[in-house]
């Protein structure tokens, strides 16, 4: 189902969910949960958005039923730790590549995914100052390195 333009802000979180469907279903589940909450705030009134969000809710309910034995899905406190660890793992991988002077698409994506997963952490409550700083840094790094590679420059 195509994403209504009003919900464009959640497209990357939904893509991350799709990419983790097999690799890490808990990541996929919480990315969709974040997209659901953010989407409802963006627009749940127009028919096209309502239709999209109802489908997304169906998908979330199906996932929760199918993954009933995953503690990180049945217990949000476990889910919170899981998403935070995963985001940190992504961040540290990209940061290590960055500090070693290895600039490539994969590390850009890891920085960006880490920043998206910090967004996802907001489903569990207010973000910590550290979360906010990590997100800001990761998003800036992803953009900066992407621009440098596109222009044939070496990132600093």
């Amino acid at each position: 189902m195509s994403l209504p333009p009003q919900l464009k802000a959640i497209q990357h979180h939904l893509r991350t969910a799709q990419e983790h469907e097999q690799r890490d279903p808990a990541v996929a589940y919480y990315c969709r949960l974040y997209a659901m909450q953010a989407g409802m705030k963006l627009d749940s009134k127009t028919p096209e958005c309502r239709k999209f969000l109802v489908k997304l809710m169906d998908q979330l309910e199906t996932m929760k039923n199918a993954l009933g034995n995953h503690e990180s899905i049945t217990q949000e406190i476990v889910g919170h730790a899981h998403i935070e660890n995963y985001a940190l793992k992504m961040f540290l991988y990209a940061d290590n590549e960055d500090r070693s002077g290895r600039f490539h698409k994969n590390m850009i994506k890891s920085f960006y995914t880490a920043s998206l997963l910090v967004d996802v952490l907001s489903v569990f409550g207010e973000l910590s100052e550290e979360n906010i700083q990590h997100r800001k840094y990761a998003r800036w790094k992803a953009t900066h390195i992407h621009t440098c590679l596109k222009n044939g420059e070496t990132p600093q």
């Binding site: 949960l33 009134k45 309502r50 969000l53 109802v54 809710m57 979330l60 309910e61 929760k64």
Partner: peptide
């Protein structure tokens, strides 16, 4: 009147989504 009814339908559907979300998260 039509717009009032339309807004009421939208609001009910929105409530339904909110309720499903709360149930999903075991918050009810």
């Amino acid at each position: 009147t039509g717009s009032v009814v339309g807004a009421s339908v939208a609001s009910t559907e929105q409530d339904e989504l909110s309720q499903r979300l709360a149930r999903l998260r075991d918050q009810v």
